[in-house]
């Protein structure tokens, strides 16, 4: 049963179309990943779902409620973890959580319990009395997430929750997300980190230039590039002519070259690899390393757009 229905939603800023006629559905209890490079329109879409931005067109239903007409009911169902830390730096972690809890209508003993729980989820119970501005980036991120959990939302929307933090905090966050989802929470997780989406999400949408360019389970998406490997070659010098030669080889589907990294999508790495290496050597390109990767979301994106995720 689909819990969130997005029906031909678009958003235009003058000439720029940030979200371009998007439609999809998210089932209850799903961990939905929204993957795409920076500027793909993920945050705009999230802002539209959370009622911060009015769409130029289209309709969104959350649990059957139109977000336009039933705004305050929808807001109570949703919990958003914003991309930027949205906390008061001079207040303590506990005070911040208490504040946001009250903004969701919590009070009294329930509020105290929820704040305690949220601090436990963030793993920062012992730092409740410390001011946010004394926290590290990762700790702030964790409180930033905790603040969205206080009212036990049916849907948790996380907009790039792991930007710029240490690996330890990142692992903590990913584990938390998994745990919350197992407890039955529907989660929308946006990121431009392919690994995170791949690790977490059961159902994935890939976004680029304001459009959903592919959608499905991990397996379904991989099938798009099935039997395709990625050969990654690190070069110390470059030669545009030779790239064109490689492109024309049999079994080579696509080729990108970024900062000395040559990525080649191919149907069969074993047959084509020898040819590629000899072509490169003939052109006097020096090879540092060669890697052969099985297909992943990165290669899906590459396959669909001809660009790498992080260019």
């Amino acid at each position: 049963m689909s819990y969130i229905q997005i029906k031909s939603v678009s958003k235009k800023y003058g000439d720029l179309t940030a979200v371009d006629n998007i439609s999809f559905e998210i089932k209850e209890g799903e961990l939905f990943g929204l993957l795409g490079p920076n500027g793909a329109g993920k945050s705009t879409l999230i802002s539209i779902i959370t009622t911060l931005i009015k769409p130029s067109g289209g309709q969104i239903l959350v649990n059957g409620l139109d977000i336009k007409t039933k705004q305050s009911e929808v807001k109570k169902i949703l919990g958003l973890v914003p991309q930027d830390i949205a906390l008061y730096p001079t207040l303590t972690a506990g005070e911040n959580l208490a504040f946001w809890g009250k903004m969701y209508g919590l009070g009294g003993r329930l509020l105290k319990e929820r704040v305690k729980e949220a601090l436990e989820i963030a793993g920062l119970s012992d730092r409740a009395k410390n001011r946010i501005d004394s926290f590290s980036g990762g700790m702030k991120r964790r409180i930033n997430i905790a603040a969205a959990l206080l009212h036990k939302p049916k849907v948790l929307i996380m907009d790039e929750p792991t930007v710029g933090i240490d690996p330890q905090s990142r692992n903590h966050i990913l584990e938390t997300v998994q745990k919350l989802n197992k407890e039955g929470m529907t989660v929308i997780y946006t990121s431009h980190y392919m690994e995170e989406i791949e690790f977490l999400c059961s159902y994935i949408g890939i976004m680029d230039h304001g459009k959903i360019i592919a959608m499905g389970t991990k397996e379904e998406l991989r099938k798009l590039v099935s039997n395709k490997d990625v050969i990654k070659i690190k070069l110390t010098n470059e030669n545009d002519a030779v790239f064109n030669t490689i492109k024309k080889l049999d079994n080579v589907d696509n080729i990108t070259f970024i900062d000395g990294d040559l990525s080649i999508n191919t149907g069969n790495a074993d047959t084509v690899l020898a040819k590629i290496i000899s072509t490169l050597e003939n052109a006097k390109c020096k090879i540092q390393t060669i890697n052969i990767e099985q297909s992943n979301l990165e290669s899906v994106f590459l396959h669909l757009t001809g660009r790498a995720l992080r260019d």
């Binding site: 009622t51 305050s72 914003p82 830390i85 906390l87 946001w100 903004m103 603040a147």
Partner: peptide, 14 residues
């Protein structure tokens, strides 16, 4: 500045 203005906006507060 603290991005809390947006967060206030998504809370069920008019």
């Amino acid at each position: 500045k603290n991005n809390t203005w947006g967060r206030l906006g998504i809370s069920p507060t008019s």
